[in-house]
Design a binder for these strands. Sequence first.
DNA 1: ATGGCTGAGCTACTCAGA
Length: 258
Amino acid sequence: MKIVSWNVNSVRARIQNILNYIKQSSPDILMLQEIKTENKNFPVSDFKNIGYESHIFGQKSYNGVAFLSKIKFNKISTGFINDKLNQSRIIAGDIKNKSDLIKLINIYVPNGNPIDTEKYDYKKIWLKLFVLEVKKTLLKNKNIIIAGDFNILPEEIDSHDHTKYENDALFKLEIRKKFRELVNLGFVDVYRHLNKDKQEYTFWDYTAGSWQKNNGLRIDHFLVSNNILNNVKNIIINKKPRSKIKPSDHTPIELEIS
DNA sequence: ATGGCTGAGCTACTCAGA
């Protein structure tokens, strides 16, 4: 089964790129972040026409997450944490994989910049609530996949120049500690697990020729719980969509499980 | 390079992104 996570930076502005990507890559499940639209304006029929059901947690202008899926989802929920600002940042649902029931949690973590503002406090509180809720969820289901735009650079190797990010909400030590805390509940950062020293990115800023210079960041991640780590076959950062006309600033990360 | 693009909402310009 192929499960993909992609921050598309507006589902409506990106519809043709997304449809092209799906036709080439044919994921079983596509987890979208930053759809930037309300449920009623989500292009459900465009995806239905190529065989995908939509499960949407939208918001006007900002944020918003969704699942596109060829397979059936159960128990879709949009209230995973009590988001203090009522922003649409998490959608979760259960899927059947052979005899396993797997909970998929699709997240768009707050950016948190600049760090001397309430935006940074919101990111910290959000992460705290999220870690607490994942810990509770693990007691009920040991099979969990968390994927999405984490807005966290886990280590120095995950950016083109970590010295520029020491006082950035993506790389502040206390934020990276929250990421470690989440992993230490019993997860594996799949990309880093299978690529110990490789320096690849999932995001390149639109400005300053970042893409051309490969000045990127690895901030989109797949965390798989230890119980299903043996099911992981492969993980790939697919850079092709970032090279297209009118791209998202993020590119898809693709997980293959058995 | 001290935010240099981009999208949404709206229809001039701000907010947000990372």
